[in-house]
């Protein structure tokens, strides 16, 4: 105890008098409040650009949805004013009914969902297995093969499109005639011609190979001692530990598969097999029907938005962990 206390006076010394302590407490509270206010201000200041950026990225979508409700003339007259982003004026669903009159939308969406789902689903299986073989198995020539696979990334698809059309038109296939399976040639006008060429993907293989290489090989060795085969190691150890890589590949495969245009245009002549992006061309007649273009775009964007919202967390975490953006 300090000498001040023994004299019966108020506590003093290093802690100071009660008034001083109270003042210090008040000061601390004020400081804390001030710090909290500063943090809030910083947070608000930090949010402002984020909100602005979000609005910036949202504008095209808002413009698309809003314009899909307006007649062509109004879309063009609103374009240089903020009204372009507001559902004002002659609002109706006419463009949507026009879309359904002009294009078999449901059929096109169904085709794209089927083709995209299979490309993504089979793609992650095939490419992850290839990545596993290249990163975990010891065999001669794997580095050369990986180099060759990566080298194919520099070849633009457009340069090989026509030869590919020729080749797929000569590939064997099985068709049913009166319930009897028959051997035939030519993959044109089918779903599988839109799917099979895009299952194996050099970039996906590279991504899986790189990701799998970061998983310690001691896991494999322990599993081998327990009697696991390579496929079991792949399925029970590698796949569960590689969620972000699978999510990344799924997303990176989904978008181009959904947006396919040139390839289906060349290999599919029957309307009932066409995907959504080919359908977009239906609206570009001599004078484009902009309202219907916006309505159609809104309709075909919905599945992508739903997919993104459903897998938003996986999408963000895959970017964070793999450093790859779509």
């Amino acid at each position: 105890m300090s000498s001040d206390t023994t004299r019966g006076g108020p506590p003093s010394g290093r802690l100071g008098t009660p008034d001083q302590m109270a003042a210090r407490d008040a000061e601390r509270v004020r400081s804390a409040e001030e710090a909290a206010r500063r943090r809030r201000r910083r947070k608000v200041v930090g949010y402002v650009p984020m909100v602005l950026l979000a609005l910036f990225f949202l504008f095209p979508l808002v413009f698309m949805f809003v314009s899909s409700l307006k007649p062509d003339a109004q879309i063009l007259s609103d374009i240089d004013s903020p009204q372009a982003f507001l559902p004002v004026g002659d609002i109706s669903l006419d463009n949507y009914s026009g879309v359904f009159d002009r294009v078999p939308v449901a059929r096109f969406i169904l085709n794209s969902v089927l083709v995209t789902t299979l490309i993504v689903g089979l793609g992650v299986i095939v490419n992850s297995m290839a990545g596993f073989a290249l990163s975990r198995l010891e065999w001669s020539g794997r580095k050369v093969l990986l180099t060759v696979i990566i080298a194919t990334l520099i070849v633009p698809f457009e340069t090989i499109a026509i030869p590919m059309v020729y080749w797929v038109s000569k590939l064997p296939t099985i068709v049913m005639e009166n319930g009897v399976p028959m051997y035939d040639f030519g993959w044109l006008n089918s779903y599988h011609v839109q799917i099979v060429p895009f299952i194996a993907n050099a970039f996906s293989i590279f991504l899986f190979t790189q990701y799998f290489s970061t998983i310690p090989k001691s896991f494999d060795e322990a599993a081998r001692i327990d009697g696991a085969g390579w496929f079991t190691i792949y399925r029970r150890i590698i796949v569960p530990l590689s969620g972000p890589a699978f999510a990344t590949v799924a997303i990176l495969t989904f978008l181009p598969a959904w947006n396919q245009y040139l390839w289906p245009l060349m290999v599919v002549q029957q309307e009932e097999l066409r995907p959504v992006m080919v359908g977009m061309q239906y609206f570009f007649q001599i004078n484009p029907a902009w309202g219907e273009v916006m309505a159609y775009t809104s309709l075909i964007t919905l599945p992508v938005l739903v997919m993104f919202l459903a897998f938003q967390r996986a999408f963000v975490s895959s970017i964070a962990s793999s450093g790859v953006k779509g």
């Binding site: 299986i125 099985i174 035939d184 006008n189 779903y191 599988h192 799917i195 002549q269």
Partner: peptide
């Protein structure tokens, strides 16, 4: 099973595409 399922699915797709004949 996975391989068979994939093959069946693709074959089914192919069949759906071939149903109306080529052009």
């Amino acid at each position: 099973a996975m391989t068979a399922a994939s093959a069946t699915l693709l074959a089914a797709c192919g069949q759906a595409g071939q149903a109306d004949g080529g052009s």
